[in-house]
Design a binder for these strands. Structure first.
Lengths: 236, 236
DNA sequence: GCTCGTTTTTGAGCTATCGCAAACACCCTG
DNA sequence: CAGGGTGTTTGCGATAGCTCAAAAACGAGC
């Protein structure tokens, strides 16, 4: 098992309040693994045997209906935890996790969680905070889906992705991992066709530059304007 | 300040793992208050000075957009906590809480939370579990909003309400607090008009019996069937 | 450099649902 | 028990976005 350098992860929210000398003890319980692009890390419904901390790459968490439709729950960026089923008392993963880029994660066995929490109560507090934040984001998403039109929702989604995983270029901000029209549709509750039409329109207006699984926001501010536009303030 | 009987709350999930003799110490930090029907318990954006445990009644948590549209985040039933902003590290309430019936709640000052958690780590673990469960429910709701039609979403919403706060009658299951078409619309991302039409239809078919802020599921199983019907398996 | 599979684009019609408007029913109050 | 306010029903037109369909663009591998 490769040794993890504590200095690389010490600053993460998960370890807030944990003394540096204790961090090593926590990390000793973890192993790390590499996931090639497009491989599954765990499947919805599978036994939640581990929980994860993403070190490199990007992971898509998606939920599937009985009838096969999918939604993207979120994209995981480096430094974030995922697969926390056990912390919330679920025996099985409620979603599927796929590496969308070559990725590396730290992996703890679910069974280690109770012991870790007992020894380092900050872990529970920190995780509570994380999960709470996600809950709020989730409510915001519900609010958007209930009250906004598709174009605005797509605008919001891209802005969020840019904030979380945007890479600054001279020409604008690029979403730093491969993402398809279909993925965006599954984040916003629409179809890939509609997303394609919207992005085509934006490209015309010089708001974005995009291609196969690639999006650059050329005019982030312009997109903010779109995102906040009231439903009827029509374009020319 | 009225003394709270520990035996009434000892079994609640929040206090799992807390020794009975300690429970009193926790309750000593709380006061209780009565909220008349339709009164606000706290407002979205206000300082999160307290967190709550509902003892009697029902509370609606709703989120408002800048432009005034609302969604219902959830209904709180007796025994559930709400207003947990502090636990997730938010200084202000992200939603408004309204008593939909005469209600009674225990109230702790936000400032007491860190001390309580330090002294009784199970509180953090239990709260994590609660928040985690809500997160999953929230994701389920997003999934439904993305993939199902309005009628199915309304069916799911009513079934959930019935499970959480249903009162068994001979004639069926009654939602045990006042709830309007508008409220249901705000839970499912539609309009009161559409909800009204749907319920009218169901009433014709004998699935429900409903009136002003009142709904009885006369044929819960029939509604389950509706809820699970695939989008196109058309009715006669 | 060509081939194959995937992703994206675009068109055209269709429909579930919205938005508006008006009438109606119910409940509480005085 | 009449009045006023809130919640509900229903009709009708408008439309955002979906569905189906097909072509085009792109990238990876041979």
């Amino acid at each position: 098992m490769a040794k993890v350098d504590t200095s690389l992860v010490a600053h993460l929210p998960l370890f807030g309040g944990v003394k540096p000398e204790d961090l090593d003890e926590i990390l000793r319980e973890a192993r790390s693994a590499r996931y090639p692009k497009n491989s599954a890390i765990f499947e919805q419904g599978a036994d939640a045997q581990s929980f994860f901390l993403l070190l490199h790459g990007h992971v898509r968490a998606a939920k599937t209906t009985p009838t096969g439709e999918q939604i993207v729950v979120r994209y995981v960026a480096p430094g974030e935890t995922f697969g926390l089923a056990m912390a919330i008392g679920a025996a099985r993963y409620p979603a599927t996790a796929i590496a969308v880029d070559d990725s590396v994660a730290l992996i703890w066995p679910t069974s280690a969680w109770p012991r870790l929490v007992e020894r380092f109560p900050s872990l529970a507090a920190n995780t509570l905070q994380t999960v709470g934040t996600r809950l709020q984001e989730s409510h915001t998403r519900i609010l958007e889906m209930s009250t906004q039109q598709v174009e605005q929702r797509v605008a919001h989604a891209l802005l969020r992705l840019a904030k979380q995983s945007g890479k600054k270029l001279d020409r604008g901000i690029e979403i730093d991992f491969p993402i398809s029209r279909q993925d965006i549709a599954q984040m916003t509750g629409t179809t890939l066709h509609t997303v394609s039409r919207i992005l085509s329109g934006w490209e015309q207006q010089g708001l974005v530059e995009s291609g196969r699984q690639r999006i650059i926001l050329r005019d982030p501010h312009g997109i903010v304007v779109l995102a906040e536009r009231s439903p009827d303030s029509g374009a020319a």
